[in-house]
Structure formats: C-alpha cells, structure tokens
Design a protein around this nucleic acid. Structure first.
Length: 255
DNA sequence: ATGGTGGTTCTACCA
C-alpha cells in the first residue's frame, strides 16, 4: 500500500502536474495540502476520472487539505479537534483500506513576533493530544503532511540561516519530537539514516537551482503502521518541471 | 536590511 503526501500550493494551478504524476505513479492514497480553494472549487471529477475517491476540506484562498484514495474512504473528520473557534482548514482524517490516515497542513508560524507563532505552537499541542488518542485504537495510523518543521540541522542546507525561523526554532522542534515520543515513528528518517534530502525549495533566490532546500513534509506512523513500514522516498523530479509546486511528493510504502 | 518568486485576488496577504 503506497501513500503519498504533497503540498501542491493551489490544486487548480497545479492540476496538470498533479494528475500526471498520480497517473504515472499510481499510489493508493494521496494526501494533499494547500488546496487554496473551497470544497466546490476542488476538481473532484478530474480525480474520479483517474480512479480516485475524494474527501475534501477546503477554504477560500488559503489552506485546504484533501484525501484521495483508490479505496473507499470512510469515517471522515474535518478539522483538528480541540478548538471549535479554529476556522482554518488544515486537517482531514479518514479510514482507508484499514489504515487511519490524516492530511495535515501545520501552520507555518512566521513571523515569530506575531500571533502566528503561538497559533502554530498551540496547534501542535492540539495535534499531540489528538495523536495520543489515536494510539488507543492500536491500529495502523499514518499522519502525513506539510508539518512546517525542520526536524534537525541535517534537514536543511544551512542551519544557521534558519536558527530563528518558526520552522526550526527549538520550541517548534521540541513539539514535533513530543509527538514522536508518544510512540510515532518519522518514516523517512527511520529508513534513511544519514541521507540529506529535501522536500521543499523556495521559489525565491534560486533555491532549487542551488539545492538550498528543507525537509518539512513528513509521515508519522503509529507502532502498528511502523511494523508495516517498508519504504519512504522523496521524489524531487516534479520540482524541476514547469509550473512546479515549491514542495515535492513524499511516498510511503507499507507492507 | 532588503528583495528575490509565486499563489489568490484586486490589495494586500500568505508562504
């Protein structure tokens, strides 16, 4: 079973790139982030035409997450539990082929001297609480998405340049690690010990051409999912294409 | 310190 996570930076601006990649790679499940459209603007028909069911949690202009699946999608939750006043569409969760999957678009948090940073940290506390509850099912849980977290220095080109950024601040990384410490395994790093690999390159400053990237798109796996972990790879080829997203797909394979 | 790019939407805001 293959599950992909991909921040597409507008699903409608990226529709040709995404449908082509999905057809070529044929994953079971695709977790999308940054749709930048409301539910009724999501190109559901285009994905149904290539064999995928869709569960969408959209929002006008910003955010927005979705789960695409060749298998039936059931028991969908839209929105991260824990704060009814949160209006941002950043979390969708469902059951697919016996696996509980979530598509996560964790807040960026910059600039750190604004309300965006505490919003990020509070959102991570809520995610940890919810992730802890999911473990009680003792079934495979796969939390995939754009976490907006650089877990370690080796996950970026120049750690010094990111030192005070919301993606790399110690508080942010500690909260990410606190979710791992519940019993979740970060799939890519578990299988690629010393590999330097990135999942995002900024549009600005020739970041792609100079390979000044960061690794911020992750899969966190419950113990039952980790027992089935076979492979986790980053496909950076889509970043070099015309009209590319600034993120690339990360591909998880479970036995 | 600034601006570099790209998306949504039309004037800034977000990343």
């Amino acid at each position: 079973m293959r599950i992909v996570t991909w921040n597409v930076n507008s699903i409608n601006a990226r529709l040709g790139n995404v449908t082509k990649w999905v057809k070529d790679n044929d994953p079971d499940v695709v977790l999308l982030q940054e749709l930048k459209t409301m539910d009724d603007g999501f190109p559901t028909q285009d994905f149904e035409d290539i064999g995928y069911n869709c569960a969408v949690f959209g929002q006008k202009s910003w955010n927005g997450v979705a789960i695409l699946s060749k298998h039936e999608i059931s028991d969908v939750i839209r929105g991260l539990p824990g704060d009814d006043s949160d209006e941002q569409s950043r979390y969708i969760e469902a059951t697919v082929n016996g696996v509980r999957v979530a598509s996560i678009y964790l807040p960026n948090g910059n600039p750190v001297d604004t309300e965006k940073y505490p919003y990020k940290l509070n959102w991570m506390d809520r995610l940890r609480t919810h992730a802890r509850g999911l473990l009680q099912s003792e079934t495979p849980v796969v939390l995939g998405g754009d976490y907006n977290i650089i877990p370690e220095g080796r996950d970026c080109h120049n750690p010094a340049a990111w030192a005070d950024d919301a993606l790399f601040r110690l508080e942010s990384r500690q909260k990410f690690r606190a979710i791992e410490n519940l019993g979740y395994t970060e799939a890519f790093r578990a299988l690629n010990d010393n590999t330097v690999a990135y999942s995002f390159w900024d549009y600005q400053g020739g970041a792609w051409q100079q390979d000044k990237g960061i690794r911020i798109d992750h899969f966190l796996l419950s113990p039952q999912a980790t027992d089935r972990l076979k492979d986790c790879k980053i496909d950076k080829t889509p970043r070099g294409e015309e009209k590319a997203s600034d993120h690339v797909p990360v591909i998880l394979t479970l036995k």
